[in-house]
Design a protein around this nucleic acid. Structure first.
Length: 275
DNA sequence: CAATGAACCTGGTTGC
DNA sequence: TGCAACCAGGTTCATT
């Protein structure tokens, strides 16, 4: 479930093994992900250090010392795992293997292949079409403020749930945490975005931050459990208040939770608590 | 521009 | 048991 917390957990898991290390070998077993992986990348990256691993929204950026960056997106089903030695067996849908000089291999696995890997000169990243209009990061309280969110929602008349999932409004928000944040803020998902008051925007800002930070903390603890073993996936079990809990009692008022499709995406809410 | 729906792809679950 | 239909955490693209 790669929304912001999962992508950040993945980034944290990879960072200690990849950053500051030269790449020994890049092996691409399938190039046809969402977009074809650029040819010649294997040669270009061989022997080069990875200087930093960053995240913008749901994108991960691998800054390589030759002045290029890899832009990686996990799509719907992408994940990484770390193999500390040369992996003996690979699984179906293991598409990319990044082996470092240290002997560690990061393996990208993606069943549905909605994810992708692109290359872009590092200095051009701010102008890259996928990144240029990215919203403020909700984990950054200086940028993600109630007045910002209020103004951003004011310009949209779509349902507030759809609006907060827009990466130009909240970077990294996805379908699960959108339902969770609106429940916490007691805001009904189908409210028009432009009907959200400044006071509600304030509540929603803090609910978004709270929901994402709590998921991230849960991912972090799962990560610590995995560190001793070989597998580091960005995915983890997390308790949801409303997501995937149709007909189950609302944790607050105990009325049955409801499920409703919005733009084809499952949306969960409490019709009594959320207005 | 903003809003809507289809498309991309695989596999698990549901219902007849 | 078989098989079709539906569903899944995301994003772009074409069309209104």
């Amino acid at each position: 479930m790669p929304e912001l917390p999962e992508v950040e957990t993945t980034r944290l898991a990879l960072e200690p093994y990849l950053v500051g290390q030269p790449v020994a070998d890049l092996k691409i077993r399938r190039r046809d992900l969402r977009w074809p992986i650029p040819s010649g990348l294997e040669k270009q990256i061989q022997g080069k250090q990875i200087l930093a691993l960053r995240r913008i929204g749901k994108y991960m950026l691998f800054d390589v010392e030759d002045g290029h960056s890899l832009i990686v997106h996990l799509g719907m089903s992408g994940s990484f795992r770390i193999a500390k030695k040369t992996p003996k067996t690979l699984k179906k849908h293991d598409h990319i293997l990044i082996t470092m000089k240290s002997g560690v291999t990061a393996i990208y696995h993606d069943q549905r292949r909605f994810g992708f890997l692109l290359s872009c000169p590092t200095r051009d990243l701010p102008r890259h079409p996928l990144l240029a209009k990215m919203a403020p990061d909700p984990l950054n309280p200086k940028a993600f403020t109630p007045t910002y969110l209020y103004a951003a929602l004011k310009s949209r008349k779509s349902a507030v749930k759809l609006a907060i999932m827009d990466q130009h409004i909240i970077a990294g928000m996805g379908n699960i945490y959108a339902s969770e944040a609106l429940f916490l803020a007691k805001i009904h998902p189908s409210r028009p975005a432009n009907s959200i008051t400044l006071k509600e925007a304030k509540t929603l800002t803090s609910a978004v931050s709270k929901v994402l930070r709590s998921a991230l903390a849960s991912g972090g603890s799962t990560l610590r459990d995995y560190v001793s073993g070989e597998n580091v996936s960005g995915y983890f079990q997390h308790h949801f208040a409303v997501y995937d809990r149709e007909k189950q009692p609302c944790p607050h008022c105990h009325h049955p939770l409801q499920k409703q499709a919005m733009s084809g995406r499952a949306t969960y809410f409490c019709n009594y608590c959320q207005h």
